[in-house]
Design a protein around this nucleic acid. Sequence first.
DNA 1: TGCACGATTCTCT
DNA 2: GAGAATCGTGCAA
Length: 199
Amino acid sequence: MIVARELLGKFLVHETSEGVTSGKIVETEAYKGPEDKASHAYDNLRSKRTEVQFGPKGHAYIYLVYGMYHCFNVTSGDAPGKPEAILVRSLEPVSGIEIMMKRRKISKAHLINLTSGPGRLCMALGLSTKQNVADLCVPPLYVERGVTVDKENIARTTRVNVDYADDWKDLPWRFFIRSNAFVSKANQQRKTKAGAPKD
DNA sequence: TGCACGATTCTCT
DNA sequence: GAGAATCGTGCAA
């Protein structure tokens, strides 16, 4: 939980043959292992996919959603064998913007959409399941100490698209930097699944 | 072995 | 605003 807040303002860097791309983390979501129904590792569900969450913290957990997009997480379990992860939802582009635009096939006019969403930031940074389990302390994929974000500038809300998680969906485990233009708008006007309980 | 579905995004109307 | 795209994963039979 603390890690999710600490990640805000840090830089996520990916070095590839195309060049170095990096961005400032401006939005995160916490997923707290066995007891969190919204987590893939709920009820200690240990599988090929969730295995990395049970490993040491500070590693990449990247998985495919909806068959076409990837989500990037940082493992953060305090104790060994405790599956916790922080989903990075959006970044503020810092370097390699040209490369990211090329990867996303968008123009400068749409820069705001470059990395503002879990799937988008993975596309922009060139992340896929190939980078799964990568150690985030060493290149080519690593987290760099960035700027310190004032507590007052950190906002927290409920998580996005976890309607299926009963009471767990209402927990304010989504953190983002207040008034940052690159925070994803995904929590606004989300579609609710037919028959899904509303508040 | 087969089926249903999702921590999303984009395009079309 | 609504719906399609798309495939790995989990679960049931």
